[in-house]
Every structure is written in structure tokens, then in C-alpha cells.
């Protein structure tokens, strides 16, 4: 039971690491990139931790206790990564198709000012707002 619990947790971590690197096999890739919350993967790690707990209840040894403690840490990290930021507060972009993009004057990475006047014609642009480096 102990090794099955580890197999489940480590398989999910493998999926997580390969998916995060963007170089893994496409197994579950859609879920990694598109799913709001990858419940299937979370279910597997939680099942793994449950089996780890069952193994501890069956054999109360130092090895089982250490193993379960480690599993709890791994599952907690895995869960917090996928659940945190997966439930954004309700919001709506205050810009609809056809509306004028707001004017701005901001610095770029080389501290050069870029500005936009709502009425100024120029080449089309794609703006991507992201959470910043982390």
C-alpha cells in the first residue's frame, strides 16, 4: 500500500514538472494548461496521501510516519499550487470590442517611454497583461 501511495504522488509530480517545463509528453497537457482546476490530478495525490495514511494506520513504524509526513508536505504544495489563483474574484474587463484602448505613457524594459493616444492611428498591437515575473 505504501509503494502505491508513493507511485500515485510521484506520477502526479512527474506530470506537473514535465507540464511546467512544457517539454513533457502531451498526456494531460490540456488539463495542465486549460483546466481551471485539474481535479483528476488533485484526486490522485489526495488518494495517494490517503493510502499513505492507511499504511501508517496499519503499521505504526517510524518509516511509515516519516513517509506519510513527507507525503503531506508534497500533497500540500501540489494542492496549493493548483488551487491558489484558480479562483479569481469576479471581475470584468472595462473594455469591449470596438471601444478605444485607454491612453497611457509607460516605461519599457529599457526605461524608454511608450505612449499611446487613443485617437492616434498606428500599427495594430497586442497587449498581454500578465502577473509579472516570479
Amino acid at each position: 500500500m505504501l509503494w502505491v501511495s508513493w507511485l500515485l504522488i510521484l506520477a502526479c509530480y512527474g506530470w506537473f514538472i514535465l507540464g511546467a517545463m512544457g517539454s513533457g509528453p502531451p498526456i494531460g497537457h490540456d488539463e495542465f494548461i486549460h483546466a481551471r482546476v485539474p481535479w483528476r490530478a488533485l484526486g490522485f495525490v489526495w488518494l495517494g496521501a490517503g493510502l499513505g495514511l492507511a499504511a501508517l494506520a496499519k503499521r505504526r513504524t517510524l518509516l511509515s510516519a516519516t513517509s506519510f509526513g513527507l507525503q503531506v508536505l508534497l500533497v500540500a504544495f501540489f494542492s496549493s499550487y493548483f488551487l491558489q489563483g484558480s479562483f479569481l474574484p469576479d471581475h470584468a474587463v472595462a473594455l469591449e470590442v470596438g471601444d478605444a484602448f485607454p491612453s497611457y505613457a509607460l516605461l519599457d524594459q529599457d526605461e524608454v517611454v511608450h505612449s499611446r493616444d487613443s485617437n492616434e492611428p498606428r500599427e495594430p498591437e497586442l497587449y498581454i497583461f500578465y502577473r509579472g515575473d516570479w
Partner: peptide
Amino acid sequence: IAFPTAILVDRRGSARWVYESETYRQR
């Protein structure tokens, strides 16, 4: 920080496509 968003703006400065993500992992 910003909610993950993408906006395509045409030559006249009008939004032509607006994308709002449901999570920080989605793009």
C-alpha cells in the same frame, strides 16, 4: 497585479479582441 488579460488593438486604437483568463495558469 493584473488579472490575466489579452487585448488586440487595431490601427484606429479600437479593441478588436479581448481575452480574459479564468486562472493564472490559463493563457
